[in-house]
Write a protein that binds this DNA or RNA. Structure first.
Lengths: 131, 131
DNA sequence: CATTTACCTACCGTGTCAATAGGTTTTTCT
DNA sequence: AGAAAAACCTATTGACACGGTAGGTAAATG
């Protein structure tokens, strides 16, 4: 299940792309347009700044802006940053985890196949595809 | 993220299918083979009985068995029962929920498309495909 | 220097997850 | 009849994530 972090984060990215005029866009405007509490969006956007998806600027005239063109972002990279992982099962989410039952596990192949489908879907989808 | 309920539930179903000899299979045997606490499996299996996936029988010689042939079960129906929903976003998980932003939501079409992919994948996959 | 904005820290109630614990009932086998 | 084996039932637990809210600090601009 994609949480609000991923869903709202994606909507912020779309909002930034749609309202891009070269300068910074204040979070308040985004919050109003998206009908999401500005306070909560602060948490969301903070992650996006840390993850290098957007750039922030303080002070009057400040706000946020994209660091790349919308067609250079994949939905996958956005969701992965916000959700931590995009994997559907715990055993595949952590790349370092080495399951002792992996040889005999009858479900692992299916989870792997499914994971690939999910991965492909979201990494082929560009932010620009959502505008 | 598929929780242990879904993952373990599926493994129990596979175990029941593989070890089917016509009679009931005690949970203890399943727990031993699958290396999962029997106590915890009780919770899992209870849901499966309530959902009509398996049949239980008390007393000596009791245990659990499938009610259908493995090829008649879809992985989708098993996961949906165990997880409550298989949808990737909250707005699609509850069929009765009517989002006020659905007309203008730029992400909804993508979630719907993705949901269909997930749904199709798991409902086409049969329990017998995992044996 | 006032205003606007991002940025930071802390907190909170609720719920789910992944179990564990201990007891009761049902059924069969001897 | 009685022991054993099994499902079945109720309760509890600790940890953590979710979805926020609150209030303050720092930075930039006009």
């Amino acid at each position: 299940m994609i949480s609000t972090k991923g869903r709202y984060g994606l909507r912020v990215m779309i909002d930034l792309a749609k309202n891009d005029n070269g300068s910074y866009i204040p979070l308040k405007d985004i919050a109003d347009r998206q009908e999401i509490s500005k306070k909560y969006l602060e948490i969301i956007v903070k992650k996006m700044v840390e993850g290098g998806l957007v750039k922030g600027s303080s002070g009057k005239g400040g706000g946020y802006k994209l660091v790349k063109k919308p067609e250079k972002y994949t939905v996958g990279e956005i969701l992965t940053l916000m959700e931590g992982t995009i994997s559907s099962v715990a055993c595949l989410a952590d790349k370092d985890y080495d399951c002792p039952r992996k040889k005999k596990c009858e479900t692992l192949p299916m989870w792997k196949e499914f994971d690939k489908i999910v991965h492909d879907y979201f990494y082929k989808k560009k932010l620009s595809d959502l505008l």
